[in-house]
């Protein structure tokens, strides 16, 4: 896989048909660029032999093969895991916003698909929870083959719901997932931040590792509007006509405070918090996941 695809533009990604192909494109491109093998773990199930290359751990050299062929081969093993990862995806109507052609929900679904593909490839259990003001769909985490397709199919057919209440469904997820694992929350987190942090605390209390991807559209972050504009809330908040330059500073300050509060709340709960905007390649998100995954190991 070429390096070129590593930082693939989400817009180009959107033009690829099929969620699986998209996920594969992202993940393979991402993995091929890593210098270090990601296949860590304590699995002992033999997979194949591979010629030794500098950087491989000498402990994995199969000396019996060396004795027979006078060449260095390293043993590769199928990784085994008992980690269950739940991707918790926000379907609220505010996710249905796009200033550059790709909605936050589309971006989030690609991210979720890529993560699911990556997790599945690592032989971890993968599950999916979608929610609005309550849980919309829950696919429990499994490792079996074909489960990935179920999740990808679900991700291909997402529809937003009118309202959101992030706190309540997250508490329900925390109660529903018994086995300790990893929770990947993908949302714009446009709700009361205290409730969100409280929900994260609930996950942490249940022993879950939590990764938060806070998705924004670039327009939300930069507020690039001019002239008089009638802003209409996507979740029935009403409308507000304003001259953008007169409210921009105040808006950005409130947004910054909101994000800062979330980031601080996540930090204090040892939760990974990543701010993404829909123009950014998905690799950043995957990297954040792997970093968090490594911490778990």
């Amino acid at each position: 896989m070429s390096n070129v695809l590593r930082f693939i533009d989400p817009k180009i990604l959107a033009s690829i048909s099929g969620m699986e192909l998209r996920a594969k494109t992202v993940v393979e491109g991402f993995l091929s660029g890593l210098h270090k093998s990601p296949y860590k773990g304590f699995s002992v199930e033999f997979a194949e032999y591979r010629q030794y290359t500098p950087g491989d751990d000498p402990r994995h050299i199969d000396w019996k093969v060396f004795g027979r062929f006078d060449r260095y081969y390293v043993k590769e093993f199928e990784e085994e895991t008992n980690l269950n990862c739940h991707i918790v995806l926000d379907l609220s109507n505010s996710m249905n916003f796009a200033s550059n052609g790709m909605t936050k929900l589309e971006y989030a679904s690609y991210l979720a698909a890529s993560l699911a593909y990556l997790i599945s490839r690592q032989r971890d259990g993968i599950g999916l929870v979608t929610f609005g003001d309550k849980i919309v769909h829950h696919i429990p985490a499994q490792v079996r083959s074909g489960h990935l397709q179920t999740i990808l199919l679900e991700l291909s057919n997402l529809k937003t719901v009118p309202r959101t209440d992030i706190g309540l469904p997250l508490h329900q997820v925390a109660d529903a997932v018994n086995k300790k694992g990893m929770i990947v929350l993908i949302s714009d987190l446009l709700d009361d931040p205290e409730k969100i942090i409280h929900a994260i605390q609930h996950f942490r209390f249940r022993g879950h590792e939590v990764i938060v991807f806070n998705i924004f559209d670039a327009a939300e972050i930069t507020f690039p509007y001019h002239n008089t504009i009638k802003f209409v809330g996507l979740e029935g908040e009403g409308e507000y006509t304003a001259i953008p330059h007169s409210v921009r500073d105040e808006y950005l300050a409130r947004l910054k405070n909101h994000i800062a509060f979330l980031e601080k709340g996540c930090g204090s709960n040892r939760t990974s918090f990543s701010l993404l905007d829909t123009s950014k390649p998905l690799d950043f998100a995957l990297q954040a996941y792997l970093a968090a995954r490594a911490g778990k190991m």
Binding site: N93, S94, M95, F97, K104, D188, L190, D217, E220, Y225, N227, T228, I229, K230, F231, V232, G233, L234, E235, E237, G238, Y240, T241, A242, I243, S246, V247, E250, Y251, R254, L255, H258
Partner: peptide, 24 residues
Amino acid sequence: KALRVDFPAMRFLLQSQKPISRWL
């Protein structure tokens, strides 16, 4: 003829609605 924009982060705009609208 004010441009209509469907906007998700309304909560940050609405907090300062009254004074700005009156001024406008």
